[in-house]
Design a protein around this nucleic acid. Structure first.
Lengths: 216, 216, 216, 216
DNA sequence: GAATAAACGAGACGGTACGTCTCGTCTTATG
DNA sequence: CATAAGACGAGACGTACCGTCTCGTTTATTC
């Protein structure tokens, strides 16, 4: 799922950055980046994320736990949020399910429940800390949306498109608007209201959306 | 709208706190809290909030601008987030509109637009910084929900209840679930996706909710 | 021994200060100074001096222990050093002994030992903290010398004068210089060197002074 | 005169402190201590000592003037008194004179005058502020005695020893007691009494000590 | 008595320094 | 040449006292 490294590559912005030369036969001249250090940093960060809110994690503590120089972290990531996101994506299984039961309504319910399963998992609660971070770092916000939100959103988009093609849902509907309604109400509840959102509620949300509010 | 001061009252937790005796005849003995300082602090904070993200504001800077000792701030508020929320609520007009046009659908559209007007206003963008803060401070989260989110949510709840009574909407619907759908999709869009949410979109959201997704 | 109050009298510097009028028949109009508070302050200070170096005592702590407003302390004493000195002089018995055995040498030895007894007593160690304070407060230094050092110095001066009259010591000697030698060596040892100074040493000091250094 | 740095070395108390291994071939790994900062701190402190009593000097002001972080000062010195003593010893010429005129009495007079010259000099008045500090910091007191008082005291001790060998002074005298008498009376006069102590007085002090008090 | 005046306790206030912490940068020696 | 180790300037943290300033209360004297 993860195609390119999340970290910004400092080499490309430096004079000697043209190391990805023609044949790419030789890596750059000096000592190579230590995979060991990288893994130690991500592992330490993940470990910290489990016990401390992202806001209270410090680069200093990450370096200490990873047995790594601070400069090494600063060299490869612009801020602790990026390290954390990297650690996060590195760990969790991002394979978003793609159910196809024949019924869009049933697919959506399943999809929403899978999101809830993730969100209420051990690592899922980190999600809202990324959201918090994104409120004061546009760059990070954009990266987070791209890497994390979009794939999950698209998984619902696919179901929607299929439903339109099948004639299950009104073809005049604004696709994005519907996706906002589905994910929005869920995330609003767990992140903003910080209230429980269980399976029944997920099902009821989808049902309500399909039925509409108007009395019959 | 705001009845009691937001700040925690340190006196009430002290031994001598039972001073509001029967007749409530006398104030505490020492010098009274300076209203002047309080206003200066809130004003300075509001001013700072307009130019700096909450995360980057420091108590030190607030004190400097307000011409106030740091200890005075620490005495009356537990953290800068509380000062900021106090300054915010003190400033904005919290009189949530309460439209009643006869049509629930039209009322909801108006209500949602009024929220958008607020959110896109000069001070409205502070909203999402409170949300961010709420992700790592449960106490603050609770206060923020109580003081800010609930009143607005209820304004929609009132419309919903009226619509049920009038028979405009299905009386079997889960009230809270519908409110989540309405506010959730809006807030998700502006806070999480950080994407535009204009008047047409607000109207379409309500319309879609009423009509339902199913094709006819 | 103590004739006048140690504290500065704030009234004398005020417009209405001419109250000690001719006959001194009437006290000032308002409420009188609380002897109770004064005693509480001195007692609290003395108590603190036994457990904390003067440097680390705060007016705030004195007020807290004495159950007194800070302003009351500031009103009657210019700084904590003055409170402490007042408390100190109030407590200790300043009746300096005045031995007269017929031999100046014996009298001096007894006198020096009485000083050591005081200095090594429970409250005596406060002495050097006053000395420390005197190094950065000229006013206090002067008061300390007048109230504390001079009386003890004079007790030795009296013995010296008597010895001169009796012909026991050389009448050409500089009186002050001899007093410096006697007290100086003792205080230097205990305050500057912070080394022990026992009875034998006291006796030997006086003997050496009488004999002179020159070999015979 | 000063062989080793005054500051406590934080490294020696750490696990990795055994780095001065056999061959002592390599310095520690990280960045070395900045001599530039050290000099700036000492210079700023010395400058401040000339205009402010030690008691009123703050670490914050030293850091400000030296253009240095506060933490750097706290890292290398335990308190401002240590910085000040370091600055002081770094500056003044500690080469204590060692006169040998053939007469112990003349040597002692010269020595005492040289001490007075120092004490009444521009930087000499700082001396008594160290004494004050020593009254509430045992550790510092010990360091001050070792670094400053002992060398000067020994310079007189040498003269004394020589005089004993030459038969100029009574060989039964207690060496330390005599040193206390000489330095004690001088320091008592200038520090405790804060009275003048001129050359004539210095000479008279030594003369009196040699002659003894007894009338002839 | 009533009015006036001072001293008092309580405690809030603007300042300022404390000593600690983390930031992001910078050497230095090692691999 | 990428590292770890770690020193560095900067500056905010939250706390503690400073000395001053209201407050409302209490105790005297004066009218």
């Amino acid at each position: 799922m993860r195609q390119r490294p999340l970290e910004h590559d400092p080499a490309t912005t430096k004079p000697g950055g043209a190391r990805n030369a023609l044949i790419l036969r030789s890596r750059s001249r000096g000592r190579q980046r230590s995979e060991e250090s990288k893994e130690a940093i991500l592992a330490a960060t993940l470990c910290l994320l489990k016990e401390t809110p992202l806001r209270d994690i410090t680069i200093e503590e990450i370096a200490r736990r990873a047995g790594v120089g601070k400069a090494t972290i600063y060299k490869w990531w612009p801020s602790k949020a990026y390290v954390a996101l990297d650690a996060f994506l590195n760990k969790i299984n991002l394979a978003v399910p793609n159910p196809d039961t024949g019924s869009a309504e049933r697919d959506l319910k399943e999809q929403l429940q899978s999101f809830l399963n993730f969100y209420t998992s051990r690592t899922g609660h980190i999600y809202r800390q990324f959201l918090a971070e994104a409120q004061s770092d546009k760059e990070f916000a954009s990266l987070f949306r791209e890497r994390f939100l979009k794939p999950r959103r698209e998984a619902i988009g696919v179901i929607f498109d299929r439903a339109v093609k099948r004639g299950e849902v009104d073809s005049n509907l604004d696709r994005e608007l519907v996706l906002d309604l589905i994910y929005g109400s869920a995330i609003y509840r767990v992140v903003v209201l910080q209230a429980p959102f269980d399976r029944e509620r997920a099902d009821a949300t989808i049902s309500t959306l399909f039925r509409g509010l108007r009395s019959r």
